[in-house]
Amino acid sequence: MTRTPDRSALPSRDDARGPSVSRRLRWGVLAGVGFVIVPLVYAVAVLTPFGQRLEDSALGGVRETDLFGSDTALNVISVPVILLLVVVIAAVAFARRRLAVGLAAGLVVLASAGTSTLLKRIAVRPEIAQSTTPNSFPSGHATIALAALFAVLMVTPRRFRPVVLLIGAAYAVFVANQTVVYGWHRVSDIVGACAIALFWLGIVRAFGPAVDRGARGDRDGRRGPRRVVTAVLLVSVGVVLAVGVTALVVALASGYGSGSYDHDALLVAGRMASSAAVLVVVTVVWLADGMHHAAATTDTKGVPAPA
């Protein structure tokens, strides 16, 4: 006896369309946020005397004997390395039969790097606060470090993303810290870099191919690592912000009435602000990617995959 399948149990056309609409909206909003942050930070921190004086005061604490004794992490980021990274991303995507995703991930890296380079040329820094440090908005190193992390995550199977994200986030924070410690960049340069990487990731994820399609390699794996990563990111953001605010209060208190602020404390505050910018963007991307919860993906036949 042949039984008629229960069509009510099958997803409707509207239900099938829902996740796509949600994905486009979610990532489109993040792209919009990145698009707004870039000119906003530039206008406040670069085009005003107060913004320039505040950021330049932190540079007064820069010394050659500061925390990092090597710029190896910064020297890793170069044009040949960027091109090699794009090739590796495409190769991994091709091996997973996700070439379209690999090309989209490569676009995130190249477009972010190109936008950062272009803005350095057109976003001039007016000399309105007697600054001796040339224009550096935004940070190309921080842009590429974040864009590379986001691109690698796109081609990485979901069950491996927790480890990849923690390693990549640590490197991006390290790069942001080094650029500030060495006096290469100000906090606004790092914030602008984060916004650029977020903008292009949002554009590609909203209008490009779906990164996860429910195939075997897209299954979540164990819930524990995902929850650990979420906790680590949230705690890290809280700790970094607390240290940064404390350093800023100490710096301002030291100069109360005299106007001579503690530049070392301001440098710590600047480093923490730069680290917080990176960590906040990484956390937002992690949550937007849906990796923080235990919702099961489905396989290509629509059967829920085990978490």
Results as ranks from 00 to 15, higher is better:
33 V>E: 09
38 V>D: 04
61 G>Q: 04
57 S>G: 15
80 P>G: 01
48 T>D: 01
84 L>W: 04
32 G>A: 03
82 I>C: 01
50 F>D: 10
65 T>D: 14
31 A>D: 10
58 A>D: 12
85 L>E: 12
42 Y>C: 02
83 L>F: 08
61 G>I: 09
86 V>Q: 03
46 V>Q: 01
36 V>W: 06
43 A>Q: 13
35 F>T: 15
45 A>S: 11
83 L>T: 05
31 A>N: 13
41 V>Q: 08
84 L>H: 00
36 V>G: 04
68 F>A: 10
85 L>S: 14
26 R>I: 08
52 Q>E: 14
64 E>L: 12
52 Q>T: 12
83 L>S: 02
53 R>P: 04
79 V>Y: 11
44 V>R: 03
69 G>P: 06
82 I>F: 01
62 V>N: 07
78 S>V: 05
31 A>E: 11
84 L>A: 14
27 W>E: 03
43 A>L: 12
82 I>L: 07
61 G>H: 08
52 Q>W: 10
86 V>R: 07
67 L>E: 00
77 I>Y: 10
50 F>N: 05
65 T>R: 04
62 V>K: 07
58 A>W: 03
38 V>W: 00
34 G>S: 08
39 P>N: 11
29 V>P: 04
84 L>G: 07
64 E>Y: 06
28 G>S: 08
56 D>C: 09
80 P>A: 03
70 S>F: 13
85 L>Q: 10
76 V>A: 14
76 V>F: 15
43 A>G: 05
71 D>N: 14
39 P>D: 13
66 D>C: 08
85 L>G: 14
48 T>C: 01
47 L>Y: 00
62 V>W: 01
46 V>R: 00
50 F>A: 13
43 A>W: 09
48 T>E: 02
83 L>W: 08
33 V>M: 13
69 G>W: 04
40 L>P: 06
54 L>Y: 14
87 V>D: 07
31 A>R: 04
56 D>L: 10
